[in-house]
Design a protein around this nucleic acid. Structure first.
Length: 293
DNA sequence: CACTTGACCTGTCCGC
DNA sequence: TGCGGACAGGTCAAGT
């Protein structure tokens, strides 16, 4: 579920809520959600102070004064939800978040981190997500961090870089390359479909058959959708919520994602859903031609 | 090497 | 109303 904009939204929320807080208790009810919990938690997590919250691709790093960091991957259905003393006041009576926050922990809660009066819940319905405790200084050397490509929206990521990265897989279809975290980090199914629509490129087009102009247009479209989605607090098609339990509103702006059967906002043709790279894929068959060039 | 499939899990939705 | 199957935004391993 959560892609770069969703994870970034969670990061910003956690940054506001968690910095300076001390971890007091940790409970984990699913071993796989926190594999090294047993061995390291007592020493490096309990009584540690939270000093920073960072993001890389779809991963979160919660840095601690113990020189360890909690690395979190939300995968499809993960949530990091903070509930403090003031959570009830923050959301007035009748606000949907008030009841959501009230219900935690729930059946999807895998890890509960006690922070004095407040609590941080790692919820994950499908149990694909995980958190691990690792020495902060070693994060960049971990295989699953090291292999990540650059962030498409970082300062200094140019069209030249983009072309160079894409061409590493020139014989592949463009959608699977956008989803490849080693090419670029952070793009998932929603923003792959949305950016390809924006650039009027069919997802099955091979990278080598794209013109330079099309690739430039794709980068502009990709940055646009990612930045808009961050502004909108991400996309909540289903499970996703931010650090306060709020849903994101990008889906209101989505042009094709989950809009099969509706009219393309650009040309009025009916949006279709197909399968590309093993994923549900949404396109406008008129704006995005599969076989040009 | 590139691509597909299945696996990891649970919940929901759709058709019968 | 109940049941079975398909499907869901991520990633990895294994197979073709």
């Amino acid at each position: 579920m959560p892609e770069l904009p969703e994870v970034e939204t969670v990061r910003r929320g956690l940054f506001e809520l968690l910095i300076g807080k001390n971890v007091k208790t940790v409970s984990c009810d699913n071993q796989k959600s926190f594999p090294n919990a047993k061995t390291d938690v007592d020493v490096f997590l309990i009584n540690a102070k939270i000093t920073n919250i960072r993001r890389r691709g779809k991963m979160l790093f919660i840095d601690l004064s113990s020189k360890y960091s909690l690395i979190v991957h939300l995968k499809m259905t993960g949530q990091m939800v903070y509930v403090g003393d003031d959570s009830q006041q923050r959301f007035g009576a009748g606000h949907p978040n008030r009841s959501l926050v009230n219900k935690l922990p729930d059946s999807s809660t895998r890890v509960t981190i006690g922070l004095g009066e407040a609590k941080l819940f790692f919820n994950d319905q499908r149990k694909f997500g995980w958190m691990r405790l690792e020495p902060t200084i070693e994060i960049d050397t971990l295989d699953y961090v090291k292999k990540l490509g650059p962030e498409p929206i970082e300062q200094g990521f140019t069209a030249k870089d983009f072309i160079e990265r894409l061409l590493r897989r020139k014989n592949s279809n463009i959608k699977s390359v956008l989803l490849d975290q080693t090419v670029m980090a952070g793009v998932g199914n929603i923003y792959a479909d949305e950016s390809l629509w924006g650039a009027m490129i069919h997802p099955t087009m091979l990278v080598k058959n794209l013109s330079k102009k099309q690739i430039n247009k794709l980068l502009v479209a990709l940055k646009y959708v990612l930045e808009l989605a961050i502004e909108q607090g991400g996309s909540s098609d289903k499970n996703y919520v931010d650090a306060e339990g709020k849903k994101g509103s990008y889906m209101k702006f989505a042009k094709v994602f989950r809009r099969e059967g509706q009219a393309c906002p650009r040309c009025g043709y009916e949006i279709v859903k197909s399968r590309v790279a093993g994923r549900g894929t949404h396109t406008c068959p008129n704006c995005q031609k599969a076989n040009t060039k």
